[in-house]
Design a protein around this nucleic acid. Sequence first.
DNA 1: ACTTGTAATGTTATCGATAACATGCTTCAT
DNA 2: ATGAAGCATGTTATCGATAACATTACAAGT
Lengths: 351, 351
Amino acid sequence: MPPSSQKATMHDVSRLAGVSKMTVSRVLADPDLVSESTRNKVMKAIEQLSYVPDRVAGSLSSRRTNFITAILPTLTNSNFADTAQGLAEAMRPADYQLLIGYTMYRLEEEERIIRAMLARRPDAIVVAGTTHTKAANEMMLRAGIPIVEIWDTPEHPIDHAVGFSNYEVGRAAALHLLALGHRRIGALGSRMDSDAKDLRGESRLAGFTSVLREAGLGDELVIREGLAPVSYDHGALTLGVLLERAPDVEAVFAVSDISAVGALMECHRRGIQVPDDLSLMGFGDFDIARQCVPAITTIRIDAELIGRKTGELLLQVLDHSADADNSPASAINVGFELVTRQTTALSKKQL
Amino acid sequence: MPPSSQKATMHDVSRLAGVSKMTVSRVLADPDLVSESTRNKVMKAIEQLSYVPDRVAGSLSSRRTNFITAILPTLTNSNFADTAQGLAEAMRPADYQLLIGYTMYRLEEEERIIRAMLARRPDAIVVAGTTHTKAANEMMLRAGIPIVEIWDTPEHPIDHAVGFSNYEVGRAAALHLLALGHRRIGALGSRMDSDAKDLRGESRLAGFTSVLREAGLGDELVIREGLAPVSYDHGALTLGVLLERAPDVEAVFAVSDISAVGALMECHRRGIQVPDDLSLMGFGDFDIARQCVPAITTIRIDAELIGRKTGELLLQVLDHSADADNSPASAINVGFELVTRQTTALSKKQL
DNA sequence: ACTTGTAATGTTATCGATAACATGCTTCAT
DNA sequence: ATGAAGCATGTTATCGATAACATTACAAGT
């Protein structure tokens, strides 16, 4: 460990500058309140002592930590990483620090994390998803701070929400494949295990099957295998399962581009022509989906935008928190967009 | 905002349980110190009041925040996300919370972040990279807490280090391509801009060119274009630049698998056969490199392991921090491994 | 019986800042 | 001239916990 020089406190600075602690505090928090000459004296003292203010003490005193808790399923999914980055970016000018926790798609873990995070007294909580354990829900309700549920559209929001409808995403996917004339349509998702469940992915599958049923088709080709988070392997494996169940499948929707890419590569390996033999689409508009050959049809959501919008919303709410609870709980729908690329094509049967 | 019930303090709990604050504190920190009957009373009071301890106050008092600062170039690179996850995983049992900052590959930004983070009084700092601004270096030296530089092997470590030699990675890549009989060898990297520079990628390129020169080859095919972080597009674009400069190039090393994948897809689009027309390799062993068709030869580093090892090291050091500065600064080299797959093959000229 | 040890709990003094109010000194309109 | 207003600064009281030391009660050893 490097040599520890005794850390200087605000008191040390004030003595060296010949002013009171409060003046030092003002120089740091609101320089305009202090005359230029004193300000310079204080700045010099800060410099000389390499003083770094102690925000722990500051937070206790001011009852504001400038921490924002962000609870996401995982960091190793570029979509969520984008959201985190967008949120961090939006909050940075206001000097907020992100406290990131990840749940591994487990609700009990989410509850544990919320409890642990609340002890840090964050100024707000951002949480992915709209389904939480009872205890988690109560803790957030009681917390007395703004809560933002993101990445879906909650029916009963705790407070604010920023996201899109995963259910509608699933419907849009199914409608696209149907419109191309496909009838043997499948999907690749993950298992709804008690260990780990991708509730948003499941919503997409639910929307997807709802359309299939409306079209008089069954949902027997909707595969749920493997645990969240999905991977390239997941796509490859579940495609294998699907092909075994229905060698004549014409079109497939994967709940994530990652799975879609894995499935596409599996097609390459098996000599299945995409989209001639099989139409394939994903979700998320990951970079790789655009870069793949052939480029993958997908549903674009702007993950970074979700983060940024959430940040902007919070800045506004936190700023007005002075004038009591007049902050109306807002629900922002950022929408999504079907991006047709090269992996989906008209059914040959139609031709 | 949800209704804010007044938050209960430890004092409230102690009154309700009919004990002193200190006893409540003990129940939470070291339950064995308290008799079973009092402990139960206290627990009941905690439950009744939905008491959540205030770690801000606790940290100020105990002078330990249980925060670990992790400073990484970006979160949207699965390698760094893996490292973060590994670190978080290792520290979690000891109840440490990660404070993540990302620099966007900019040293000035790193300095800014270090300064901001130090105000939170972390118990340790983990920072990617071994090159820092002068001010950043001094701040870390002065901080009086363990510092771990990761993702490279520093010549002059500030304190501890966990990583591998990027320079040797570059050498291994060049040696592999040379061993296959290639002589027209190029590389794809990013520009060393003042805005953003990937110093570790640059080390890999340096090691790479050192071998080329030893073999009597020039480095004119080492492309440095675009800003870090690299992307699939980056790989596609720089490959284009390289092909323009040397249509007869035989083998290429990309500083990242991401670039390598982008380059591979560009080859697909241009009808260049890999590895028949061109050998291609990357770095990082990203999932996508293994899944690609053809699967990409790469250099595997275990990013998650770097995080985990760092965590274990810190737990040990922080635990012993009681017995003064007896913690020997350790430098752990986790090494790397060349993974030969389908994108590199013997030079045809040799045949 | 008397020290001594130890287990369980309480008391007091911080930790390093900020909020809220108080003070002193100018300035300026009337 | 004078008092209200405003600027620049200081004082005092917290914020909610933990460390360190103090106390009490009872058991065990001699």
